[in-house]
Design a protein around this nucleic acid. Structure first.
Lengths: 340, 340
DNA sequence: CAGGGTTGTGTTAACGCTCACAGTTCTTGC
DNA sequence: GCAAGAACTGTGAGCGTTAACACAACCCTG
């Protein structure tokens, strides 16, 4: 019946017409430009919510060349660590007025990360955070699109990109020293999978402390971060009670697996074997026994990485790349005790 | 020295010039339109990667009115459930060629969800998934921008928006029936916080089974999903061993808290009290004892919700809203046993 | 009350792409 | 060998916004 049945969403020009001003004035009101008469401003505002107008950020991005969107590339955001980091990133970004577009990789390799970065670049993100805990993934940062601001989280410090990470080596030192300080002859280690930078860092810290103290460095056991792999390592270690009195496990989930294996084999924790984990997942405090562990402040890592990235985006020239390190924190609970 | 030092990223016109064709032909190659001579196509392709050209999806979105981006609004993506759901959503979306822009709320209320939806709408998303496990949040879906395709996950089925969820009531029935089937007189319940739809559904299923079997419905205990709240409930229940022989806990994290409290109080699981959890987080299998629980297939929920949403986006007229239910799965482990 | 600045507003041209349509060239059949 | 159609390619406009500039109206100050 009416002149046009199909209703398209209102645009700036519609608001302008209704308010009796030019579209540019509407734009000025929206970007709260100073030089608009108060009376005009309210007239425009009234027109805006009369029409239910929302500005089209896509059109805006086209002309300003800024989408106010950040890209995040991560791996398996189902895990507590990545999930918390991404959460921290998202919060910090939104507080700064940015959107977050996320790509969560199933498997992580250079090609995959590169693709993801490419997609995000096409989409016009202003900067990219790569949560790149593996060597192979971190290497993908070498071929970023020219001029794309980026920051690596838990990545490698080589190459010319800023990195924000928890000090893994220090965390491992805390864990290992704690156990030696309790009087244990040496400390065993169940590490994360090869190629993971975090696994390497934790292994390095553990080995360093033992070496510095002149202790025997036992054979390394390797898991894949899963409770199951910890369980398997635990079965292996349980067979060596007496020889093994202290274990530093590279994450809390594997530590849970160890705990389970020890329970099954009748090995008492901490009486016969002390265990230290890493991460401090929310569950750790309620393991039996509650787990002594190293807390990583993932939220802080996320926030810091956004700080670095935004500084890079908002300054015109390219800043020198920095390396930010968030300290880990030792959390003493019931899974460790001194030797008799 | 050169004509221009400042290098701006190449655009379609640059590619066209280099390949000796019009910008439109470049566009056709990019969108693999059929009517382009093979020779022309390769010439354009060569020009594209000679210049390192990437198309500008923002400009494309401006004219097509489709950003190929989906918005996701969620609450605390640090928790295993939401994190897994969002992961499933992201995977499914990317497989379908869509980006995902995520907004993760700190606190969840109608205003917050509304704001988030507003932001996403401005940004030009083609559709929105709201992971709205609370009544208050679900209600925000009532005032969606007109014509915006949307789907609720774990939400309320009222209002005219499609909903995808795990059948919470059925899950609770499975858990409760299992315990009754083992010969327990009745089953206690530690529920999630009020206002959470999942908590309500689980409570409803539990109560229904007890009522149908003509059993006494014990006082309800309420937690907040955290292990700590489970621990507190556990302390309370431990004081009533003998009276209490079976507990259905609304999630695995709280179940862990119960387990810890029972261990401290010397209550044996499952010998004195049987426990069933909900979620099947990766840790549950390695609790002591391994937890009998109800598995939710979060990945499936994510995928299904994207299916529904894309169908809505890609069909021009508005489809009737549907209600998709993903069945839960009972997982028997060591935390439950029959009464002597 | 002339002239310089400030303040408020409008006009026009991009931004980089796709769509609609108008050409052009190549097939094909008789 | 030539019309008729199919296959390919080019031209121009426009998506909704901001930037740059132009211009009007108003304030001062001397």
């Amino acid at each position: 019946m009416g002149p046009s049945v199909e209703r398209r969403p209102p645009v700036m020009a519609d608001v302008a017409r209704l308010a009796g001003v030019s579209h540019q004035t509407v734009s000025r009101v929206l970007n709260d430009h100073p030089n608009v008469r108060a009376e005009t401003r309210t007239r425009v505002m009234r027109a805006i919510d009369q029409l239910g107008y929302r500005r089209n950020l896509v059109a805006r991005a086209l002309v300003t060349k800024h989408s106010r969107t950040l890209g995040v590339v991560s791996f398996d955001t189902t895990l507590y660590g990545p999930a918390s980091t991404v959460y921290g990133i998202e919060q910090a970004a939104r507080d700064a007025g940015y959107f977050v577009s996320i790509v969560s990789l199933r498997t992580i390799d250079r090609a995959g990360v590169n693709d993801a970065i490419g997609y995000l670049a096409e989409q016009g993100v202003d900067g990219i955070v790569v949560v790149a805990p593996q060597r192979s993934a971190a290497r993908a940062l070498d071929d970023l699109p020219a001029g794309m601001p980026a920051v690596a989280v838990e990545g490698w410090h080589q190459g010319d990109v800023s990195v924000v990470s928890v000090d893994q080596v220090e965390g491992a030192r805390l864990a290992t020293s704690h156990l030696l300080g309790l009087g244990h002859e040496t400390v065993w280690h169940v590490s994360g999978p090869a190629d993971w930078l975090e696994a390497e860092g934790r292994c390095e810290g553990w080995r360093a402390v033992l070496t510095e103290a002149g202790r025997r460095v036992p054979d390394l056991l390797t898991g894949d971060w899963s409770p199951r792999s910890g369980y398997q390592a635990g079965k292996h270690l349980a067979a060596m009670v007496g020889d093994v009195t202290a274990v530093f496990v590279a994450n809390d989930q594997m530590a849970l697996g160890l705990l389970r294996a020890f329970t099954e084999e009748g090995v008492k924790v901490p009486e016969q074997i002390s265990i230290v984990g890493f991460d401090d997942i929310p569950e750790s405090e309620f393991f039996s026994p509650p787990l002594t562990t190293i807390r990583q402040d993932f939220g802080a890592v996320g926030r810091r990485s956004i700080d670095v990235l935004l500084r890079q985006i908002e300054s015109s020239e390219s800043l020198p790349h920095e390396r930010l390190v968030v300290p880990p924190q030792f959390v003493r609970r019931g899974s460790t005790t001194g030797v008799r």
